[in-house]
Amino acid sequence: MIIFGTALLAVCHLLGIFIGDLLGQALGVKTNVGGVGIAMLLLIFARLYMQKNDKLPKLTELGVEYWGAMYIPVVVAMAAQQDMVAALRGGPVALLSALAAVAVCAIVIAAINRTERQAESSASESMRHDNPLLTDTE
């Protein structure tokens, strides 16, 4: 059954590469645009859909989780193969897009951390009001 997780990854990867190629053609570039990222999103959505509809056996889920965890190092290895010098010579667009991506990630992470802290503080505050034995020093 674990092999079905690998098959699901392969289907998502092939669809992602195909969609990335179509996106590249639509943008007028001769390269794949985001195919690996699209494949990862397809894998996540397929896994969530199958879990929701109880069509994902435990062993298949283990295969999907394994390849989902392995996918990130594969993406990093693929990105390391790109020619960074040529990208920087091509103009400041590569540098600006990299800075924008880092900024967006930092903002999203900060927002997630703030919402988690607020949720934790409201949960602990509601516990204090529900339990008269707890004091403000706890």
Rank of each mutant, 00 (worst) to 15 (best):
residue 23 L to V: 14
residue 24 G to N: 07
residue 24 G to D: 12
residue 24 G to M: 12
residue 25 Q to C: 12
residue 26 A to T: 02
residue 26 A to R: 11
residue 26 A to D: 01
residue 27 L to Y: 13
residue 29 V to F: 05
residue 30 K to C: 13
residue 31 T to P: 08
residue 32 N to R: 12
residue 32 N to T: 09
residue 34 G to W: 03
residue 35 G to D: 03
residue 36 V to F: 12
residue 37 G to Q: 14
residue 39 A to S: 02
residue 40 M to L: 13
residue 40 M to Y: 08
residue 41 L to H: 00
residue 42 L to C: 00
residue 42 L to W: 01
residue 42 L to P: 00
residue 43 L to S: 09
residue 44 I to Q: 10
residue 45 F to T: 07
residue 47 R to F: 12
residue 47 R to T: 14
residue 48 L to Y: 10
residue 48 L to C: 12
residue 48 L to Q: 11
residue 50 M to V: 01
residue 50 M to H: 04
residue 50 M to W: 04
residue 50 M to Y: 03
residue 51 Q to R: 15
residue 53 N to R: 08
residue 54 D to G: 09
residue 54 D to S: 11
residue 54 D to A: 15
residue 55 K to P: 06
residue 55 K to Y: 08
residue 55 K to G: 09
residue 58 K to H: 11
residue 59 L to G: 09
residue 60 T to E: 10
residue 60 T to K: 07
residue 61 E to Q: 14
residue 62 L to R: 10
residue 62 L to M: 11
residue 62 L to C: 08
residue 65 E to D: 15
residue 65 E to Q: 08
residue 66 Y to T: 14
residue 66 Y to R: 14
residue 66 Y to K: 12
residue 68 G to W: 02
residue 69 A to P: 08
residue 69 A to Y: 04
residue 70 M to Q: 11
residue 70 M to S: 06
residue 70 M to T: 04
residue 71 Y to P: 01
residue 71 Y to N: 05
residue 72 I to V: 05
residue 74 V to H: 06
residue 74 V to Q: 08
residue 74 V to F: 13
residue 76 V to E: 07
residue 76 V to I: 08
residue 76 V to D: 06
residue 76 V to N: 04
residue 77 A to T: 00
residue 78 M to P: 00
residue 79 A to F: 15
residue 79 A to L: 15
residue 81 Q to Y: 10
residue 84 M to Q: 14
residue 84 M to A: 12
residue 85 V to L: 09
residue 85 V to G: 01
residue 86 A to H: 04
residue 88 L to Q: 07
residue 88 L to D: 06
residue 89 R to W: 07
residue 89 R to T: 04
residue 90 G to Q: 02
residue 90 G to P: 00
residue 90 G to C: 01
residue 90 G to L: 02
residue 91 G to D: 06
residue 93 V to H: 01
residue 95 L to G: 04
residue 96 L to P: 00
residue 96 L to C: 03
residue 96 L to R: 02
residue 96 L to Y: 02
residue 99 L to G: 00
residue 100 A to H: 03
residue 100 A to R: 04
residue 101 A to F: 05
residue 102 V to G: 04
residue 103 A to M: 10
residue 103 A to N: 07
residue 107 I to G: 05
residue 107 I to V: 10
residue 109 I to C: 03
residue 109 I to P: 02
residue 111 A to F: 10
residue 111 A to K: 13
residue 112 I to D: 15
residue 113 N to I: 09
residue 113 N to H: 10
residue 114 R to S: 11
residue 115 T to I: 15
residue 117 R to L: 14
residue 117 R to P: 06
